[in-house]
């Protein structure tokens, strides 16, 4: 029951926020995170077109032996990705609350430029209360 990290990917596939919360996964360089985010964005675009009937929301959970990746897609195309341990089931409740914190502290902040990396102190504080350091 561990939350490893959080990514926020903008609608163009760029990583605009990345934070490690607990150790457990391999530490990557900033560049590698950017590549991973771009790849995930592509995979998500493919999975959303795979369904033979009607529309699909795209990949929601990607599970591995040591981790689980829960993807929360907002109406505006921003993706919140929470990396947790496979047994963890708190992601479904955490992600909407992270989205809420994002809406409050990032989107209502006049000093944030949409689609650009998030450097907002208030968001960090809210995340710390939600997820721990």
């Amino acid at each position: 029951m561990v939350v490893f990290g959080l990514w926020i990917i903008n609608k163009a596939g760029g990583l605009i926020f990345q934070r490690n919360i607990n150790d457990g996964l391999a530490q990557l360089s900033q560049n590698e995170y950017l590549v991973m985010a771009g790849t995930l964005h592509g995979i998500h675009a493919i999975t959303s077109r795979l369904s033979p009937v009607g529309n699909s929301s795209g990949a929601q959970v990607i599970e591995g032996e040591s981790f689980k990746m829960t993807i929360f897609l907002t109406l505006t195309g921003t993706k919140f990705v929470l990396l947790t341990s496979p047994a963890d089931n708190s992601a479904d409740t955490l992600l909407p609350r992270i989205y809420e914190a994002y809406a409050d502290t990032v989107m209502k902040n006049p000093f944030h430029t949409p689609e650009m990396p998030i450097r907002t102190e208030g968001f960090d504080v809210r995340l710390t209360t939600l997820l721990g350091s």
Partner: peptide, 14 residues
């Protein structure tokens, strides 16, 4: 309440 002032504008108060 939802405004975070960037460090380089620390003296600003909205």
């Amino acid at each position: 309440r939802h405004i975070s002032i960037p460090r380089d504008m620390a003296q600003l108060s909205c």
